[in-house]
């Protein structure tokens, strides 16, 4: 596999609240190679955003805390860096894009200021050079009249345009990795498609690796090389796009796919929702976290936590159905 750009190993993140400790991420392991796009999918509260923010060490501490695990970026463990060292990583080696472009930009600062302030911190360049770089990037992300636009305020941009700004901002220092946390969720469907295309174009032009976090399988299918399916703070299945879409092995992955309309499938086929809600992460269940909602649950699922089973070089799943003693339901 060579040296991966980012290697996350057994990451565990908890939040202490009044009601006790919430184990938001419970032992997540995955890697991102240079220039590839890895998706993390899952429903709300499954820990995908916390995972993303932990890479940047953006979870508020306290109440949040990285309890266990390592996050190696180019061989350096981000989880053990000091806050000062971490600042050198943020924005420079890793850029980040957030869900809501309406609130992620400071309403009282000019767009130009917000675009250039990162690069001015990380690189010894003049304001004019920074401005020139900002103009280049606005051109790249498809914002017309960049010079004029730099002097405007965020409220003078539409939602899609603001997300383009966010992307340009994240790319200012030419990072090797771009983390996009639900970048299309807050946008209209037509705008979503444009933003996805923009990601692909940027990746082609700059070779940046992308981690895209989403609950939208449609987005994933268009953009990702590999997919991590997260449930209740764990990765329950991981594989290439093909493997996940055409050969899903975890009942939860199957459930996700069955709950999305498909253009290539039988039109009379009904959408099947996943019944129930995720477990309380105050006290995660002893066995498989999905057992309570799983149609194929066995006694073992309630009492024993399943382990990752290797199916192909890239395809792993965490499910007791892979045990040879289980009856294959599908």
């Amino acid at each position: 596999m060579g040296q991966a750009l980012l290697e996350i190993n057994e990451l565990a993140v908890s939040f202490s609240t009044q009601g006790g400790e919430v184990q938001a991420v419970r032992g997540v392991t995955f890697a991102v190679e240079k220039g590839e796009t890895v998706a993390i999918v899952g429903e709300s509260g499954c820990g995908k955003s916390v995972t993303a923010q932990s890479i940047m060490r953006l979870i508020p501490e306290p109440p949040g805390r990285i309890k266990n695990g390592t996050i190696h970026m180019n061989g350096k463990d981000l989880a053990s860096l000091s806050e000062k060292q971490m600042r050198g990583v943020r924005g420079k080696q890793i850029g980040m894009i957030f869900q809501d472009p309406m609130t992620s930009l400071n309403p009282t600062l000019k767009v130009g200021d917000q675009l250039t302030e990162g690069i001015l911190v990380h690189q010894k360049i003049s304001k004019n050079e920074a401005k020139q770089e900002a103009i280049n990037l606005l051109n790249l992300v498809g914002i017309a009249n960049p010079e004029e636009r730099l002097n405007q305020y965020p409220h003078q941009f539409s939602g899609g345009m603001r997300q383009r700004l966010m992307i340009a901002m994240a790319l200012m220092c030419k990072p090797e990795l771009l983390i996009a946390d639900e970048p299309t969720t807050a946008l209209d469907v037509t705008i979503q498609a444009q933003i996805i295309d923009l990601f692909k174009e940027i990746q082609r032009k700059t070779g940046v690796a992308i981690i895209i976090i989403t609950h939208d399988l449609g987005v994933v299918a268009q953009i990702a090389d590999r997919i991590n399916v997260m449930y209740a703070g764990e990765i329950v299945e991981t594989g290439t796009v093909k493997e996940i879409f055409y050969d899903p092995q975890h009942p939860y992955t199957r459930g996700l796919l069955d709950s999305v309309p498909r253009l290539d499938g039988d039109r009379t086929q009904k959408l099947i929702p996943i019944v129930g809600s995720p477990p309380d992460l105050f006290s995660p269940p002893e066995g498989c976290a999905f057992a309570a909602r799983c149609d194929y649950a066995m006694d073992v699922c309630l009492s024993h936590d399943p382990e990752h089973t290797k199916l192909t070089d890239h395809h792993y799943t965490k499910c007791w159905l892979q045990d040879k003693r289980a009856q294959k339901p599908f």
Binding site: N9, G27, A31, A292, A297, D299, V300, E307, R325, Q327
Partner: peptide
């Protein structure tokens, strides 16, 4: 991609546990 193997892989689990559960009986969503 490394696999989690720290938990005892050869832990003995009785075969009878691999029978499917009757969903209607089980009190799962508590």
């Amino acid at each position: 991609m490394s696999v989690t193997t720290k938990k005892s892989a050869n832990r003995v689990i009785e075969d009878r546990l691999f029978a499917p559960i009757d969903k209607n009986k089980a009190e799962l969503n508590t």
